[in-house]
Amino acid sequence: MKLMKNTLITAYWLTTVALFIFALVLVFTWTPTESTMGDVQKIFYLHFPVAINTFLACLVNFIASLAYLWTRRRKYDDLAVASATVGVLLCTIVLMTGMIWGKSAWGEWWTWSPRLTFSLLLWLLYASYLMVRPSIESTTRRALVAAVYGVVAFLDVPLVWLSVRLMPDIHPNTIALEPKMWLTVAAFALPVTMLSFGLIFSRYALYRRENDRVEARQQEEEFNETADAAATLYHQGGLTS
C-alpha cells in the first residue's frame, strides 16, 4: 500500500516535470511568434497559467480558512498556510514575469497600471498573512487570527480589483491568439496546475507529519501530568484516610 502510494507520487512528479519540459520546448520551437509584440510575448504562455493558479491557491486558502473556523481542526490551518505559501510564490512569479515583459514592451520595469497594481496588492495581502503568523505565539490563537485574515483577505480580492480599475490602463486587454498559441497556453496550464497543487499538498503533508509529532508529544505530556497529579492525589488520600 505504502509502496504503491510512493510510486504514484513519484509518477505524478515525473509527469509534471516531463510536461513542463515539453511545454518549454513547445514555446521556443513550435509556437509561432506573435506579430505585434514579437518574441517577448512568449512570456504570456507561462504568465497566464501561473496567474490563474495564484487565484486557485488563494481559493484553497479561503476554503481551508473557512473549514478551520467551522471545525477548529489543526489540519485545515496547515492546509491554509501551505496554500498561502504557494500562492505568494506563484504571485511572485506573475509579478516577475510581468515586470520583465513590461521592461521589454514599454521600457519600464513598473507602471501603475491596474493589473500590475492588482498583482502587487494581492502579493502584499498574502505575504502579510505569512509574515504575521510567526508573531503570534499560541498555536490556536495564531490559527484563528490567520483563518479570519484568510477569509477577509479573499473577500478583499474583488474589492482590490474594483479599486484598481479606477486607474488608467495600458495592459493588453484582449489578445488575439492563433490556435497554436492557445495550445501552448494549454500545454503550460497542465503542468503548472499540477505543480502548484502538488506543491500545496506536499507542503501540507509535511506540516501534517511535523505537527502530528508535536501534537502527540503534547498529548503525552498532558497525559503524564494528569497521571502524576492523580498519583499524588491518590497517595495523599491514602495517607490521610
Binding site: L24, V27, M37, G38, D39, V40, Q41, K42, I43, L46, H47, M96, T97, I100, W101, K103, S104
Partner: peptide, 9 residues
Amino acid sequence: GLQFAIVAY
C-alpha cells in the same frame, strides 16, 4: 525580446 523571454522562463 527573446532574451527577455528566456530570462523570465
